[in-house]
């Protein structure tokens, strides 16, 4: 009987915990694995994973959120961008096992109550998406940027997006969409301010 099964005899895991096949299937012994608890889009996931298991594989294959895409697996293209404790991060460069306790937001956590986030809405209206593969990374990078930049110029936006690669749009409409979303968000927050005063 493995150590893992012994633990199972004494502790009842909460419902969110499901020790999956990742470890057993990979034929590795337990020394190579670790238990990690991640909060993704507000839900807690506790899993035992191989220490080399990438965050992006955890998100995609353990949790089943397929909106985080793999484009290069060496941190250049930005398609796999997520918000890690609020900051944009490449999930292909992170080991899940090293992130115990982290808070993660993926593209699936952006549209609240089914309505598109203002950045998503602007991408739609200004045709800033073609094949859609790089898009989740651009959206999360933009959302992070706009949180701290209320009134960006197009040049500011270009600098903020320079680490994401898009091969379809030539970036022109992406820059316009982020610019439009910025004014939309700015408008929303000033309305909010007026309501507060």
């Amino acid at each position: 009987m493995s150590f893992k099964n012994l633990v199972g005899m004494f502790f009842k895991y909460p419902d969110t915990t499901r020790v999956t096949g990742a470890v057993e299937q990979n034929g590795r012994n337990d020394n190579d694995s670790a238990t990690v608890q991640l909060t993704i889009n507000g839900t807690v996931y506790k899993r035992e994973v191989e220490s080399r298991y990438l965050l992006v594989d955890f998100i995609r294959h353990e949790v089943g959120l397929k909106g985080t895409h793999i484009g290069c697996e060496h941190g250049v293209c930005g398609a796999c961008t997520v918000l890690l404790n609020g900051n944009s991060a490449r999930s292909c460069l992170q080991f899940a096992a090293a992130l115990d306790g982290a808070q993660i937001t993926t593209i699936e956590g952006i549209a609240e109550d089914g309505d598109l986030h203002p950045v998503q809405q602007a991408f739609h209206e200004l045709h800033a998406v073609q094949c859609g593969y790089c898009t989740p990374g651009f959206l999360l990078t933009s959302i992070e940027f706009l949180r701290s930049h209320a009134n960006p110029t197009r040049e500011d936006i270009r600098r903020a997006l320079v680490n994401n690669v898009c091969r379809c749009t030539g970036y022109v409409n992406i820059v316009e969409a982020v610019h439009k979303a910025a004014s939309q968000l700015c408008h929303n927050s000033s309305e909010y301010d007026r309501e507060q005063t």
């Binding site: 909106g67 793999i70 593209i107 739609h124 859609g132």
Partner: peptide, 19 residues
């Protein structure tokens, strides 16, 4: 006309082969 495929692509719900 604005694209109908955006509705799923923008939400990360496009089904690519690895998805």
């Amino acid at each position: 006309i604005l694209r109908r495929e955006d509705a799923y692509l923008l939400r990360g719900q496009g089904k690519f082969v690895d998805d």
